[in-house]
Design a protein around this nucleic acid. Structure first.
Length: 852
RNA sequence: GGGCGCUUAGCUCAGAUGCGCAGAGCGCCGCCCUUACAAGGCGGAGGUCGCAGGUUCGAGCCCUGCAGCGCCCACCA
């Protein structure tokens, strides 16, 4: 019973089938299945604070083919989607979208509504108001995202959705943190931290990036003990001279060896600083001796820590020099006045002024030289990071702990990486860690720390022994909730308490997506069936953040890998071979391509990209994908037109030969998918399919219509049905819409719940004697030669051939014999002759008349 | 500075464990309104497989060195 449309089309099939899949629960997870039957995927939750672009869709399309394959293989797939909606990215979007700015000192205004258009000057709003706006906007964004994903055809179970600011994520994040704390894996410390002066928050090592910046190098004269100019250092940050705490040179540097242990005095301020030795000082750089400031860069922090130097901090959290000079013993009588000129200035302004002063006093040695040098930025930031001393929460990550580091490297080796060389990125990151993971952020829309602090009778906050939330009370918001044993009216009062004002960085939550998605502790039954998960698919650029931190949290919490396999996808490059990214402004949204070429065509392009390989954005490939999808419609229409009930025996040698090849394809495509190589699977199937259309369909067309009698017709029809059914299922993970469409013409149920083809289902026809591969190969080759002859003689393919003589090896001629009638019919050949020969050739003699 | 990956027709890329005269698609050229498909189909031309050595009966596939490109990491005054 077939329902083949008159004019098959791709138009509207995305909407039709994605609705049907949702209505029929095609991708629903059945949690009654046992662990070993389940295949669980730790889907990346996209950041919803922007629009999806083709780079996102690229990676998800690749993963989706794997997921669909697993489901057809018989696995019960656990494939949730999450939205990463907490964090600074969302805050920024909300600030811009509504024209507001969070001021935590303001009280909640229940009647606040943002203006229609964002005003020039941001409106200060309370923290609860700000969070409300974040929630409102992310909800809108998430609906848009879901539409895109449905349109792309992701086989996600949408009932399993989570968000990183949702209650479940809050509870998991807080619980995991409390356990880290209890086990000593998390701690609080007051220490120099990388600080973004615009967002006014600490940032972690993983969020840094180097940017080449134009700058200048200044040579400054430091005085000897007597104050006379004595030592020249080179620096790019002269404004930090008031923060100088020492000079440093390499211990083996003969030029300075006799100065170690001595002192020098800083220019302008006359502060006596020690001259110290450290192996990180590079004799080749600058003058070979450098000033150590608290803090100009991360090397300063290392020196400061390892050499136990004092702190003279001048950098404010707003990126301006602080009002008061640091504690110092300044011997220059003008020190205070000079510092006062710098106080309150931005780094740039202060630098300009201090260079003037240095020049005036003669401390500037020569003229500055312009240079370009790498400067550390917050990856989303626009001004260089500063280093300020703040109180923050950390999670240990092996930076200071060789045993933990070794354990994490071992976890990395236990994980199966696809492609395997991606592990090198993980290892270089772990080996390069230089500080523990800073997880607290001085921001608002995120997971709060479930922590309060006692306020002493003197009004001082006591950080040493924080008050912890109880696990059964999670999630808590310490700015609203009250710690056990206290009352709300004690908040902020002497003898009372205060809530920890910070939120966790978004990675502190994202590092727990396996636990969030599988409902760790909240649903032990589900957790047991889905964790550890089978697959983590993600991009290579977040190995150091998401992959590493997830491994770390799982190592701490479960002493286990969070997943078995990690599949790393590549970038999308724009046609100029540059990486597409939002910051580069060359991103495009996928929707228009779904519309122009169809979602299947878009997926085709994405899945042509090998695993882990950067892939150029290419409309040409989508065009080919579209053509393939249309070809599937048309070829299926033809096949279904002749198949009839498709019952019967496959008896003809050509048919058996075709099935033999088809069996080989099943084996190839399956093994490719087992190795996560969706692109090889697609390639093999596509190649087979085009050949099938060009050659097999042409060869059996007449016989299937009945030209060679009933048995031949039955055999052809049966083969067509087997082949069509098999090919559609092999294509289904790649092109879910068009295959579902065709499947619905003559099958019941969704193709995506059908069984992945098994070589055995082709039956004995595909094997044994008579199922030799050569029959089809030779028949196709001869047909090809006949076509070539007609083409080169500018004749229609319908032109009659008077006589064709095939020269070939005798066993191949024998194989051809078995399909001779089909070849004659397909080529419109009146007479075929065969000649034993070493080399294959076909002499084609066209008929005189052009009788069509 | 360390590491990883890449370098095959004009373009985008395939080429498991070395053995057929090196493949696909796009583009280009030619032909064909073949009753599944003309926003198609069929056919053709086109390559010193980055460079230089080496191993081997035999190398695009293995080894060494070099070069270019991309990425990751790095304590870059």
């Amino acid at each position: 019973m077939t329902r083949v449309p008159e004019k098959p089309s791709l138009d509207g099939i995305e909407a039709r089938w994605s609705e049907r899949w949702e209505a029929e629960g095609t991708h629903r997870f059945d949690r009654s299945k046992a662990r070993e039957e389940i295949y669980s995927v730790d889907t990346p939750p996209p950041t919803v604070s922007g629009s999806l672009h083709v780079g996102n869709a690229f990676g998800y399309a690749q993963t989706d083919s794997i997921v669909r394959y697993r489901r057809m293989r018989g696995d019960e797939v656990f494939y949730p989607m999450g939205w990463d909606d907490n964090g600074l990215a969302t805050e920024r979007r909300v600030q811009n979208y509504y024209g507001v700015r969070c001021d935590p000192s303001l009280p909640y205004d229940p009647d606040f509504t943002p203006p229609e258009k964002p005003p020039k000057q941001p409106i200060p709003v309370s923290r609860p108001n700000f969070v409300e706006l974040c929630e409102r906007l992310t909800e809108i964004d998430e609906q848009v995202f879901e539409e895109v994903w449905r349109r792309l055809g992701l086989a996600v179970d949408w009932s399993l959705i989570y968000t990183t600011i949702g209650e479940g994520a809050l509870r998991v994040s807080q619980r995991a943190f409390l356990r880290n704390l209890a086990r000593g894996e998390a701690y609080q410390a007051e220490a120099p931290t990388l600080w973004d002066v615009d967002d006014r928050t600490a940032v972690a090592q993983a969020e840094l990036e180097d940017r080449e910046q134009a700058g200048a190098s200044y040579r400054l004269g430091f005085g000897g003990v007597d104050g006379e100019p004595d030592i020249v250092i080179e620096t790019t940050r002269p404004e930090l001279v008031p923060a100088c705490v020492a000079l440093v040179a390499h211990p083996e540097d003969a030029r300075f060896r006799d100065r170690f242990g001595g002192e020098a005095t800083t220019p302008l301020f006359g502060v006596r600083v020690p001259i110290v030795a450290h192996h990180l000082a590079d004799p080749e750089k600058g003058t070979g001796i450098a000033m150590i400031c608290t803090f100009g860069d991360v090397t300063d922090v290392v020196w400061w820590r390892e050499l136990r130097l004092p702190t003279r901090s001048v950098m404010g959290r707003d990126g301006r020099l602080v009002a008061e000079p640091p504690e110092w013993d300044a011997t220059d009588p003008q020190a205070a006045a000079r510092y006062a000129e710098l106080a309150g200035k931005t780094v740039k302004q202060a630098r300009e002024r201090i260079v003037e002063m240095l020049r005036e006093t003669g401390a500037l040695d020569g003229e500055p030289t312009t240079i370009t040098h790498p400067v550390k930025f917050y990856e989303r930031g626009s001004r260089p990071l500063e280093i300020v001393t703040t109180r923050q929460w950390y999670i240990r990550n092996g930076a200071y702990d060789p045993e933990l580091r070794a354990a994490l490297l071992e976890r990395g080796r236990q994980l199966r990486w696809r492609p395997p060389h991606m592990r090198a990125r993980y290892e270089s990151w772990v080996q390069g860690l230089n500080s523990d993971w800073l997880i607290s952020r001085q921001r608002f829309f995120g997971v709060p720390f479930p922590i309060w602090y006692r306020v002493g009778d003197d009004g001082e906050i006591h950080y040493e022994h924080p008050l912890l939330a109880r696990e059964e009370d999670l999630p808590v918001d310490p700015s609203n909730d009250v710690p056990t044993g206290y009352r709300e009216d004690q908040r902020g009062k002497p003898g009372g308490f205060v809530g920890d004002p910070d939120v966790m960085d978004t990675w502190a939550t994202s590092s727990l997506t396996p636990q969030i998605a599988t409902h760790w502790e909240d649903d032990p039954d589900l957790f047991a069936r889905t964790f550890p998960m089978n697959l983590r698919p993600q991009g290579g650029e977040i190995i150091r953040t998401w992959l590493f931190s997830t491994l770390l949290r799982s190592h701490f919490e479960h002493r286990a890998l969070p997943w078995r396999d990690a599949k790393i996808n590549g970038w999308v490059l724009d046609p100029d071979r540059k990486k597409m990214s939002k910051s580069k402004g060359n991103v495009v949204t996928p929707i228009e391509y779904f519309e122009q070429f169809s979602s299947d065509a878009f997926r085709y392009w994405a899945q042509r990209g090998r695993p882990g390989v950067d892939t150029a954005f290419d409309e040409g490939q989508m065009k080919i994908g579209r053509r393939l999808a249309i070809k599937i419609l048309n070829a299926s229409k033809f096949a279904l037109g002749v198949i009839g009930d498709g019952a019967g025996e496959v008896t003809e040698p050509l048919d058996r030969s075709l099935l033999h090849h088809l069996r080989g394809l099943i084996v190839d495509a399956s093994s490719a998918f087992e190795g996560y190589d969706y692109s090889r699977a697609l390639d093999a199937t596509e190649r087979f399919f085009w050949d099938f259309c060009d050659n097999y369909l042409e060869l059996v067309k007449q016989r299937a219509y009945g030209a060679a009698g009933e048995q031949g017709a039955v055999s052809a029809r049966r083969t067509l049905e087997l082949a069509l059914s098999t090919l559609l299922r092999l294509f289904a993970p790649h092109l879910p819409f068009v295959t579902e469409e065709v499947w619905s013409w003559w099958q019941e149920g969704s193709i995506h719940l059908a069984r992945w083809p098994d070589a055995k289902e082709l039956g004995t026809a595909a094997e044994g004697s008579g199922a030799e591969p050569t029959v089809y190969e030779v028949a196709a080759a001869v047909l090809g030669e006949i076509r070539k002859a007609k083409s080169s003689q500018q004749k229609s393919m319908r032109a009659e051939v008077e006589r064709a003589v095939v020269r070939d090896a005798s066993e191949r001629l024998r194989a051809l014999e078995a399909a001779l009638d089909d070849v004659r019919q397909a080529g419109r050949v009146r007479e075929v002759g065969v000649v034993d020969a070493e080399d294959f050739a076909v002499d084609v003699e066209l008929a005189e008349s052009d009788a069509a």
